[in-house]
Design a protein around this nucleic acid. Structure first.
Lengths: 154, 154
DNA sequence: CGAGAATAGCTCACTCAGTGAGGTAAATTG
DNA sequence: CAATTTACCTCACTGAGTGAGCTATTCTCG
């Protein structure tokens, strides 16, 4: 096998295990998104866009095409297309920004919210139950760890 | 705002925070993969395939096109194309399976391993350092939590 | 203020990743 | 040992994402 990277540091090996688990979780979330996309006739990118838009709404952030493009790591043109598709499917609305005449504000429709909940609701519930299975202290540990990981990736 | 889902259960809200962090981490990992893809001229799918192939090698699992298709949540034809691209780029080799004449064994090249390390190495190091920042007990907590999450998603 | 630069978003033409249909060869089954 | 299943592949096509380049609005600063 091709192990040779860091020969044998048990400390590091243990940490690597955790990191691999992290990747495994990320992979499975991605696959769930893909499955949702398939069952709804949307595309993976569309679903990810929808998720980010819902996140923005929850966080009270104004979502614009430019912001979305950045979130998705895609060009603005591709994002325009995504928005067109979501708009055609009735999942999102374009509203003119009041403060900037060039900009567009994106508003997620109720139908999209309902659709998301229908699919991700059960999954989310399972995750929440799993999380609640931790004691309050452990929950804090996990939370701080994930925050640190998020920063390390940013 | 559209909060109304579960009006006000502080317990659940706290757990939701953790779940959202989990998603944030998954998103950032995905963006990192995209960035790697862009810098190497590969495509997102190709990179994900490469990562899975490396995982398989590390785990000692024989990787076949069919297995890879399942891992990527794609059709076998698309996977054939991915393998072709990776083969053309010299990142993967096709070897006939000895036990099954229909099957192909996929072998990742050393160049691909090196390429992966060049990009993901520093990122991985940061994650490992972050993980090692946890005490041994906390590390176990996180590990078990992530395992449980992985199961909940499977 | 008003010319020039920067920014937000868009259309158009094109490429190529992924799908559906369908094919071949090897393994399994009755 | 025919019939079926499995593993992978080719071909033709669709459409998601990109690069080039446009318009409209806002910012900058003499």
């Amino acid at each position: 096998m091709r192990e040779g990277v860091t020969p044998s540091d048990p400390d590091r090996a243990a940490a690597l295990d955790v990191v691999h688990l992290l990747r495994e979780v990320a992979l499975r979330l991605e696959l769930a998104v893909g499955e949702f996309a398939r069952t709804t006739g949307l595309h993976g990118t569309d679903v990810r866009a929808l998720v980010r838009l819902l996140d923005a709404e929850r966080a009270g952030v104004d979502a614009t095409p430019g912001w979305l493009a950045q979130q998705l790591g895609m060009t603005s043109q591709a994002t325009t297309a995504v928005i067109h598709r979501l708009e055609a499917a009735g999942h999102v609305e374009r509203l003119r920004s009041r403060t900037d005449g060039r900009s567009t504000r994106l508003q997620v429709s109720d139908s999209a919210v309902a659709l998301g909940w229908q699919f991700f609701g059960p999954l989310l519930d399972r995750l929440i139950v799993t999380t609640q299975g931790l004691g309050p202290d452990d929950q804090t540990v996990v939370k701080e760890y994930l925050s640190a990981v998020s920063d390390a990736l940013g």
